Simulated assay, not measured.
Amino acid sequence: MLEISLDQAEASVLDPRMRPSSNPLVKVWDIASVEFGRPDLDKALSFLNDFGLTLDCRDADTAFLSGLSGYGPCYILRRTDTPCFRGIGLVVRTLEELDRVATLPGASAVEQACGWGEGKQVRLTDPAGFPVRVVQGPRHETPAPRHSLVQNLELPRSRVNAMQRPPLGAATVLRLGHAVLSVVDFFRCVRWYMDNFGLLPTDVQTIGDSDPALVFMRCDRGDTPADHHTVVLVQNVANQYSHSAFECMDLDDIAMGQEHLLSNGWKHAWGVGRHLLGSQIFDYWRDPWGDKIEHFADSDMFTANHPADVTPLTTGGLYQWGPPVPSDFEAPKLTPAFLWKAIRNVRRSDEMTFTRAKKLLKAIGDKPRPWVGKH
């Protein structure tokens, strides 16, 4: 019987460029937010409400949304003429750490956090040009509307004379879990996040001769477990948003949320399935402007002493089970403007080359399930 396992791939030694910082500026505790510019806030809010986020407040040009827990609003909308991604927010635990972040080149002074009366923030920009806000303040917690369902799996059967009837409606978004970004200068960006924010590599994926091209990074919480990944960086020919992911209660919550989104005519992207790296149950959607957003549940958790794993980058490495990856899932729209930008980025970059870009295309272009259709 064929088994899908990371053990099939011979692990490599961690590339020195991917090693954690021995003395980071601060150690971020979590992800706080993602931010987008949208020309139609009403349309954006209609989708996000059906996705499971709750509107905190809005005016004509700005809206702030949250899950049941987190550090201030986890989804920020700004009215813009054209749709765009406007960056991520990360959490530090103390004002002293926030003061240290404010010393970084190009950082703002400590100021009131956007949409969060109890929080403070520092604004800065990463090497790929993505805005980053680092926030500090209290975490809020709202009880979930139900407990996870009791399953009759093996003996003893614990659910007797009772039926499973999860409610049909929007998924219960608990919190923002992670964001995935494509970057041209991969190693420069990785070092920036590791050296400044103490992020740790959990899984590194490679192309060609074991050359890193993707890293799943988690927060360094010492002996307190952290999600398998909080920020993921993958090398590409353009600096662009890939997706953000929001934790839900369980598989039934994700599946009923899928029914709700489908019933309201929103565009499904991929799922339901289970990731190989991180183990999350996933379901991806497209917002009205085509950007991907994910429901997930059941993430792996790691303490700081867990070493990084190194495996080859393949599309098959995205999932253990689930429907085939759609052909447009990671493929950009090949407009003349995008192609020109990609060529210009490769020519200007010290890291990305046309040869490297070809290796990346080969890695993600190989058939993820080569045995499908053979029998």
Rank of each mutant, 00 (worst) to 15 (best):
A363E: 07
I281N: 08
L149D: 11
I207G: 09
P16T: 05
D56S: 10
A342K: 09
M1E: 15
S327L: 13
H140T: 14
R188P: 11
A245S: 14
N239K: 10
Q280T: 10
F47K: 08
V28K: 06
C219P: 01
F246H: 12
E247K: 09
L168V: 12
S299C: 11
K267N: 09
F296V: 00
T224F: 15
G265E: 03
F216N: 04
M352A: 12
A171I: 05
G273Q: 04
F36H: 09
P131C: 13
D203M: 10
A109C: 03
G115I: 05
P336L: 02
H306A: 11
A308D: 00
R100Q: 06
A226E: 05
P131H: 11
I207D: 05
V184Q: 09
W289P: 04
T335M: 02
P324G: 10
A109W: 02
G37L: 12
R175S: 15
L251W: 05
V150G: 00
G106F: 12
G106W: 08
S21K: 05
E330H: 10
G67A: 10
F329W: 11
S46G: 02
T202L: 05
E3C: 08
E97I: 02
D56E: 09
M163R: 00
R369W: 07
L233E: 11
A363K: 04
R286Y: 02
G106Q: 04
T315D: 15
I88M: 00
I31T: 12
F296G: 01
T335F: 01
R191V: 13
S242T: 08
N239Y: 02
P16K: 03
M217T: 10
A179D: 13
S349V: 07
V132G: 11
L155P: 00
L55S: 14
A255M: 10
I88P: 00
Q112E: 06
L214E: 01
V150L: 08
V183T: 12
A269S: 03
G89F: 03
Q112V: 00
K358C: 11
K120Y: 08
K359P: 06
V215F: 13
N239H: 09
V183W: 08
A162W: 10
A337R: 15
S148A: 08
G322N: 14
A11E: 01
G290V: 01
L174T: 15
D298H: 14
R286Q: 03
D15G: 11
D42S: 11
G52R: 01
T172F: 01
S148P: 04
D185M: 06
V26L: 04
G222V: 15
E35T: 13
V34W: 04
T303C: 15
G316R: 14
D195N: 03
I76R: 08
A109N: 06
W285A: 09
H243V: 06
H147L: 04
H275Y: 01
W340Q: 13
Q112I: 01
P307C: 00
V184W: 11
M18Q: 12
D30W: 02
V232I: 11
V13E: 15
R191S: 15
D203A: 10
G198C: 03
P368L: 14
V272G: 13
A170V: 03
N49P: 02
V325A: 12
W116G: 02
T94S: 13
A32I: 01
P225I: 10
